[in-house]
């Protein structure tokens, strides 16, 4: 059992080596990933990086949670602004 975590909007999320951010968040029961840059609710959908629905921000950059491996201690945040209303 690995005790590795990364902070998701400040909350520690456990993950296993090689696991994507999306998989770790799903396992933690996180279904909505905050707002995406367009202000829509970010969420897992296609799992192969095509739909661009699971965008999150890592190191300032917008990335697909389903393609991006989780790294210990590297913060992951919602890609959009928490207050941004959906269009």
């Amino acid at each position: 059992m690995s005790a590795k975590t990364f902070p998701w909007n400040g909350v520690p999320i456990a993950f296993r080596d090689g696991e994507t951010i999306a998989a770790a968040l799903a396992n933690a029961g996180v279904r909505t990933l905050g707002r995406d840059p367009a202000g829509r609710v970010a969420r897992y959908f296609c799992g192969i990086g095509a739909c661009q629905n699971c965008l999150v921000r890592v190191d300032g950059r917008v990335v697909e949670a389903c393609l991006t491996p989780a790294v210990e201690g590297v913060p992951v945040e919602s890609a959009g602004e928490p207050t941004e209303a959906a269009p």
Binding site: A23, C46, G47
Partner: peptide, 11 residues
Amino acid sequence: GVTTAGGLQVM
């Protein structure tokens, strides 16, 4: 909460 079946399967 709505995903593709393939998305669920690959996960």
